[in-house]
């Protein structure tokens, strides 16, 4: 093996140099890691909710008495209620919490979070600055009552088993678009296995196309 041969460009063209695959993989693997692991971490900012709220405790009749409702939906609606004009109140205001948690000096449960809630918000009559997981862009109009009451769709269908969780998930917002991760879906690939995994226009349209007979496919039904 002479150096002469090695340096002959004509030769090297014929004979692939060793380690070609290695370099290919050296490019491929990090990019996969970047794409699948790092990118999602960079893309989304993370914010913890101001305080934790346990849906499961509140939904458990053995622990919390007074969340009325025969069905699960009714129980959800007890706090996430429809207003008189049919609009949806969304995340309850402090006034709803203080229907039960009315005394800032006496906690109803034992958790530290409740104490924090009482001292920081109830005592000061300050609204809790919740992050909303499901806020849609301004161009979107959504009527909960049309879906829940008239369409008889479960809360779960879009929101998942939120009512059974003990801890509020960390709120993640897309740094580019500003929208919550729950809109595009937690799966970075955009795959969804459950109906509640994603909330993009296609996901709405999927259902609306199926139920087109009911005639709710005009643009302005979802856009304002």
């Amino acid at each position: 093996m002479g150096l002469m041969h090695m340096k002959n460009p004509a030769n090297s063209r014929k004979k692939p140099s060793k380690g070609g695959l290695f370099f290919f993989l050296a490019g491929l693997i990090p990019s996969l890691i970047i794409g699948w692991v790092i990118y999602p971490m960079v893309l989304y900012s993370k914010q913890a909710q101001p305080i934790n709220f346990s849906h499961s405790i509140h939904m458990n009749p053995e622990i919390v008495d007074g969340i009325e409702g025969d069905t699960e939906i009714e129980k959800c609606l007890y706090c996430h209620e429809f207003r008189e004009d049919g609009t949806f109140a969304g995340i309850p205001k402090l006034a709803k919490c203080t229907e039960c948690h009315d005394d800032p000096d006496s906690a109803l449960g034992e958790s530290e979070e409740e104490k924090k809630f009482l001292s920081k918000y109830v005592a000061n009559e300050k609204e809790i600055p919740w992050y909303s997981y499901y806020r849609q862009p301004d161009c979107v109009y959504f009527s909960h009552i049309a879906h829940v009451k008239m369409g008889e769709i479960n809360c779960k269908t879009c929101h998942g088993d939120h009512g059974k969780t003990d801890k509020l998930p960390v709120y993640q917002a897309n740094r580019l678009t500003g929208y919550s991760i729950n809109i595009w879906g937690r799966n970075i690939a955009g795959y969804k296995t459950n109906t509640w995994d994603r909330m993009k226009m296609d996901d709405c349209a999927e259902c609306h196309t199926l139920k087109e007979k009911e005639g709710n496919n005009a643009c302005f039904v979802c856009h304002k």
Binding site: F82, D85, G86, S143, A146, K149, F220, K224
Partner: peptide, 14 residues
């Protein structure tokens, strides 16, 4: 949007 408003209101009365 007023149509949607009216419908939303009507839905409260089924």
């Amino acid at each position: 949007h007023r149509l949607m408003r009216a419908k939303t209101k009507a839905y409260t009365e089924n």
